[in-house]
Design a protein around this nucleic acid. Sequence first.
DNA 1: TGTGCTTCAAATGCCAGACAATTAGAAGGA
DNA 2: TCCTTCTAATTGTCTGGCATTTGAAGCACA
Lengths: 247, 247
Amino acid sequence: MKLDPASPADLSAQIAAAIRDAIVSGTLIVDERLPSEAELADQFAVSRPTVREALKRLAAQSLIRTQRGATGGAFVNRLSFQEAYPQQITTSTLLLSMNTVSFDTACEARYALERACAPLSAQRRSADHLATMRAEIHRQLQPGLTDEAFCASDVTFHRALVDGAGNPVLSYQLAGAVEAMQPLMNMITFTARDRAHIVALHVDIADALEAHDGAATADGLTALEHETRKLARSVFAERAAKRKNRG
Amino acid sequence: MKLDPASPADLSAQIAAAIRDAIVSGTLIVDERLPSEAELADQFAVSRPTVREALKRLAAQSLIRTQRGATGGAFVNRLSFQEAYPQQITTSTLLLSMNTVSFDTACEARYALERACAPLSAQRRSADHLATMRAEIHRQLQPGLTDEAFCASDVTFHRALVDGAGNPVLSYQLAGAVEAMQPLMNMITFTARDRAHIVALHVDIADALEAHDGAATADGLTALEHETRKLARSVFAERAAKRKNRG
DNA sequence: TGTGCTTCAAATGCCAGACAATTAGAAGGA
DNA sequence: TCCTTCTAATTGTCTGGCATTTGAAGCACA
């Protein structure tokens, strides 16, 4: 592992990249202990703070974990879906909120991905997943519910649908798409009438899943997508009109 | 922003979390300059190296960028899809390689997600996307091609399909699923006969996209999924038999 | 021999201070 | 007006050190 002194990148970034490559390529295997900070500093011919900055970079990506004490050190972390979820969600959320992705684009992607889970979920969903969805539908019908709570319940409903597919890779990929939409959805105010429409579609979807009917589930999601996009259009149009009146 | 002295987490992790929250919640907006390292050290009542470790953590997630010089400092980064791709791919790759996810599970997820793009890509794919796919098909037919190069070409082919949907959110999510499969695919040796099968299916898919036929595209992907899984089964079965003979 | 306590050493976590490198802007001169 | 030079601010890096944690070895004692 060597560094390029001519590189414009920070030393700590170069060191982090070198170690990351070693992990990804399999040179360093899971639970293997890295050399101590002092040893790494020697190997790369830099100071210990620089090595530490590199290790913190890797820790931020959950590639390593550190342990204090006599037998401590930095260890290659077995990256779990559990750990990867929050990062995936944070990144997806920021991508949507900072990149002027239109609501329509985000919505289209989310429902396209979710439809991909529909047949699998219809086939494999457990009673538990179905119960979660029914419970969330029930919650969504409560009158005093805030818009934020309604959206949060919506997310739980859809995640149960996705998890029903029983494929951790799908769940991981979809977590970002579904959760990242939440801040965008929170910008919408739902009338009682809107909520009734959405809940009715949720019931259709839950019924389809209960009947193990993948096609009907996908149809329900498509209907929900149309409803959501129509709702967003009207809300945004109304706001634009208000702005015009004020200005 | 305050720190919890009783927390088991490192100070730098706590500081990073505090700043990350501020970014995600919108308290810090894009391109806004953070206080200098010295000021942050004062605010959090820690030393500058500790602040620096926190900032490196955020930099590793592309949440901030740093600039040296008189008007330099750390700035909230506008997270671009461009920057997010490599991280998404690294994480997905490690999740697949370290988590004993079966080949079938990964394959199922990948093709389910890709099928979700099929109708959109059939509708919107540009001539450029189609040309890329045809070119990769041509490359895949060359006799001297190594298995690794064949897989790499396969990835390019499928990414063109996904990008054809013209939805950056889909492209981002799918990049992980498609690229992360590559190391798994590289474990397979393709006979000339296998390659011919796969290329024929690629041709079917390209034809369907050229005809703007979303359903046929999805069917082609399903056929390809079956072919891939069948191939993997036979390869793994053969290896298991060899191991048994040896042992 | 076995058990529990003490001590030790290695490693990370954190800090203070300093210097180098970089860069924008201010100051000054042609 | 334009170019050069200086200056100040900021990040990048290093040195050295102390605090804290923690497993393991050593030791006393039953």
